[in-house]
Simulated scan of single mutants.
Amino acid sequence: MSEFARGFRLHPPRSGPVFEGAAFPSGHAVVLDDPKYGFVTFAESTEELLRGGYHGARIEWAGREGCAECADYLERKRQAESPEAAATPLVDPANRTEATLRERIAAALFEQNIRIPWAMAYPDDVINYLGDADAFLAVRDAELQHLRDRIAELEQPAPERSDR
């Protein structure tokens, strides 16, 4: 077997200590709960670990460039899902200085529902909440178009009436 264990940090859903752990090629996972006394938690998998004693926690894998990798993945997924998206790419993540409206909506929805910071969201949550933000924006765009049409109707001069 040429694979080695892969290290990770386990971030609890609320503020608190971050735990170190490892996932083995067999699928098993171990987390060092208390380094001073050597307490550890073993699980059949990292998924089982998250379902069990660390429900709601987030795993940060070692050696991963999270932000750039996640942004690139999300952009590729967005372009694959929508023909229009390929023609209108998002701002280059490397040059981005602030969140887009779509990302701010997704973050607000996530933080309201899950009650943890957006920065701690799993990639699946990011994708799901960005989808929710897209739905919100679609409704907003439809409402704005309806209002623009109504304003255009009201701004048109009334036809002259002939009372003869």
Rank of each mutant, 00 (worst) to 15 (best):
Arg14Ile: 03
Tyr37Pro: 00
Ala57Asp: 01
Arg76Ser: 11
Ala85Glu: 05
Ala43Ile: 04
Glu20Asn: 11
Met120Phe: 12
Asp163Pro: 02
Lys77Asn: 00
Arg164Asn: 08
Ala68Val: 05
Pro12Tyr: 05
Gly27Phe: 11
His55Met: 02
Asp125Ala: 15
Leu10Ile: 10
Glu48Asp: 15
Glu60Trp: 00
Ala107Trp: 08
Glu69Ala: 14
Arg140Lys: 13
Leu144Glu: 09
Glu84Arg: 14
Arg51Gly: 07
His55Gln: 10
Phe39Lys: 15
Ala5Phe: 08
Ala133Glu: 00
Asp163Asn: 10
Arg140Gln: 15
Ala68Arg: 13
Ile59Val: 05
Gln112Tyr: 10
Ala87Gly: 12
Gly16Leu: 11
Asp163Ser: 11
Gly66Val: 06
Glu60Phe: 03
Arg6Asn: 06
Glu155Gln: 15
Arg161Met: 04
Gly66Leu: 11
Tyr37His: 15
Leu137Asn: 00
Phe4Glu: 13
Asp141Gly: 08
Arg102Asn: 03
Trp61Tyr: 07
Ala57Asn: 02
Pro117Gln: 08
Pro25Ser: 09
Glu81Ser: 05
Leu147Ala: 12
Tyr129Asp: 01
Phe42His: 13
Gly52His: 07
Gln156Ala: 15
Arg6Trp: 13
Tyr73His: 11
Gln79Leu: 01
Ile114Asn: 05
Thr46Ile: 12
Ser2Cys: 04
Arg78Ile: 04
Asp33Lys: 09
Pro89Trp: 01
Glu98Phe: 04
Ala138Trp: 01
Asp34Ser: 11
Ala119Asn: 11
Asn113Lys: 12
Asn128Tyr: 14
Ala62Gln: 14
Asn113Ile: 07
Val139Phe: 02
Glu81Tyr: 02
Ala138Ser: 04
Arg104Val: 02
Glu111Asp: 07
Glu47Val: 10
Ala57Gly: 02
Arg64Ser: 03
Asp125Val: 02
Met1Asn: 11
Pro93Asp: 04
His11Tyr: 14
Phe42Ser: 07
Thr88Cys: 10
Pro25Met: 08
Glu44Gly: 09
Gly63Cys: 03
Asp72Phe: 06
Ala5Met: 06
Asp125Asn: 09
Asp125Lys: 04
Asp134Pro: 00
Ile105Met: 10
Ala68His: 09
Tyr37Lys: 15
Pro123Ser: 09
Ser26Asp: 15
Gly21Glu: 13
Glu47Gln: 14
Ala152Trp: 06
Phe110Asp: 05
Ser26Phe: 10
Pro93Leu: 01
Thr41Ser: 15
Gly53Lys: 06
Ala106Lys: 00
Asp163Leu: 14
Arg76Gln: 14
Ala23Phe: 01
Asp92Ala: 06
Glu160Asp: 09
Cys67Phe: 14
Gln79Lys: 15
Arg140Gly: 01
Ala29Asp: 09
Val18His: 10
Pro157Leu: 12
Phe136Asp: 07
Asp72Lys: 13
Leu50Tyr: 05
Gly21Ser: 10
Arg148Gly: 02
Glu155Tyr: 05
Ser82Pro: 01
Arg51His: 13
Ala80Met: 04
Cys70Pro: 02
Leu130Ala: 00
Glu103Val: 06
Glu143Ala: 04
Ala119Ser: 15
Phe24Lys: 08
Ala23Lys: 04
Trp118Gln: 07
Leu49His: 05
Ala68Tyr: 08
Ile59Ala: 01
Glu84Val: 00
Arg164Ser: 07
Thr41Asn: 03
Pro89Arg: 08
Met1Lys: 09
Phe24Ile: 00
Phe110Asn: 07
Pro159Gly: 02
